[in-house]
Design a protein around this nucleic acid. Sequence first.
DNA 1: GTAAAATGTGAAATCGATTGCAGAACGGAA
DNA 2: TTCCGTTCTGCAATCGATTTCACATTTTAC
Lengths: 342, 342
Amino acid sequence: MSKSTIYQIAEQVGVSPSTVSRALSGNGYCGKRTKMKIIEAAKALNYAPDQAAKMLKTRKTNKIIFAVPDICNPFYFDMINGINQVAEEYGYLLILIYTKHQLSEELKAIQNVKERVADGMIMVSFHFCEENIKAINELSSPVVLTNQFDSPGGGDRFDYVYVDTYAGTKQGTEHLIQQGIERIGFIGGSLSEQTGMQRYAGYRDALLEGGVPYADELVKESDYTEAGGYEVAKRLLSQPDRPQAIVAANDLMAIGVMHACEEAGLSVPLDMAIVGMDNLDISSRVYPKLTSVSLMQEEIGRQAAMILMYRLHGKAMERSAIKIVPSLVVRQSSIWRTGDTK
Amino acid sequence: MSKSTIYQIAEQVGVSPSTVSRALSGNGYCGKRTKMKIIEAAKALNYAPDQAAKMLKTRKTNKIIFAVPDICNPFYFDMINGINQVAEEYGYLLILIYTKHQLSEELKAIQNVKERVADGMIMVSFHFCEENIKAINELSSPVVLTNQFDSPGGGDRFDYVYVDTYAGTKQGTEHLIQQGIERIGFIGGSLSEQTGMQRYAGYRDALLEGGVPYADELVKESDYTEAGGYEVAKRLLSQPDRPQAIVAANDLMAIGVMHACEEAGLSVPLDMAIVGMDNLDISSRVYPKLTSVSLMQEEIGRQAAMILMYRLHGKAMERSAIKIVPSLVVRQSSIWRTGDTK
DNA sequence: GTAAAATGTGAAATCGATTGCAGAACGGAA
DNA sequence: TTCCGTTCTGCAATCGATTTCACATTTTAC
């Protein structure tokens, strides 16, 4: 009942193992009658090819690794999904490695590629440093990196996919400006981090380009949590000349803002229009539904996987740094004037 | 710079490949001086053991497969997380296979185990039938099955982990009864499915045992979606003697109920207490926060992985069917009388 | 009908590690 | 010194498939 090998099939049918291999894999010539007999015998013997042996000989694993910092973060699920779509299409299995934001774990993931556990890897990392860049550059297998910042640099040996968060907050802010709102607040993450800075810059530039006055007191830093957004929003709302709209650097903070409004008796969106970013699952479930900038996670995953597939199939390509443009998903929370709630 | 083998190291150092293997893997004797030289040479040659070769010889892959119907469903992320915790602890990598609720994909996943892509598998399936049970029983590698129903039966060759959803709705209902609420409605999924029936039965039995009258008009079937819950709730709310509380068979429907209440001008929880089930991420973010029965996804994953590890390490065990008891997470939406909103 | 091309098959090498066996070198005890 | 036990090392087989080469057989072409 249990496993068997091509040798046993060969013996059974009375041919050589090589013939069995050819019959079963379809590589090379094989007579029709022999082939039939071999296939039958394989079925009878409950044969299944041993992938380890196959891998050893062919130097292909048909697996790719996705190294992700944080499995618990819903942000990455969509990425996994995007990657998996492509992987499946090309006949690859997906190995998930959870790096916990730790360099040591990232290096372990890289080591796995080096040991040929998989043919290639997609990695999300927030700390590119000499050590992991060097390790990646030494690999002979392709690696695609992604995160929400812009290019890590130093990588002549890997491709890169990233989201333009600057364009994201800019879009969100423009959407508000187009409705004629003039006092627009911003709640960001830390401005000392690159990603926080970019989101802020998008907001600021949208104001400038839109000819809307920029006011320092309408900009607050927070920590990307719901509670953080709530606290900061309370301060914004109690200001003498409170904003009419708020752009939050992520959805969790935006939801915090919504709660603060509710508590202050302000109607969203009529008294206060709100735009978030990340387009979480939750965001379409809160009331009113939250307008949010989608960071296109699934698209990132798909693009990254695509590039990896191109590399794996030897297509010649420049090293690429693909910038994904986020897209604004308009829902009730930001519809201030026009009545077309969708 | 690229890959090298133990043969190259052997040549470099002037010993035999077997010695190199022993030095590097630590199996068997190896002189201290030789070992040092070998390790040095390995480093110099940028050596990494080829896992395919190792797998072929040792018959171990150090990988497990998790076959899951639906990557997009947040329900499974926590399971993945639980599984991964255990897998990592034991030095296994996790391969994710997305079966899309299709039997054919499940069979492919099983085939992967048969071909020794991984040492074992955890699978979530909603349609156990002769075909996949048979395929699993023919495997020589261990498989652990899980879903939300009770035992599939027919499996002398696999272990089983499941959640007692009956106990879940029962707990939720009892929680309401204990607060003195008497007219408690129930919104379930299809009662013709096992899982729907069990959730309903838990509700019904809680009423019976709590001495609270059961009324047919307070029980509605829906489809586990937010929109479905909303629709059905509207009907419940417009009844002459509307319920004071509602138990929903999952959180999405419960959120639909909340929206219906909001629309009808009913305060949650004062006019209407609500309990959901699944304890989604969202549920703690809606307003008011939703009381929900946690189905312990992470715990299921952890338990399933544990059992798999035991099997893989040859520990003798009875075939097990582990029942996980869900736990009620009380939040504002169900606090009717006492003032201790937490 | 014969040459040329296409097809079918087997022997043997190969992928890169692990491991059982046997012999060598070493140590300490008598 | 002799003997025994431990430690070290090499040889060679093995895991299970793929693939090159050579040869045998068939088919096609003219």
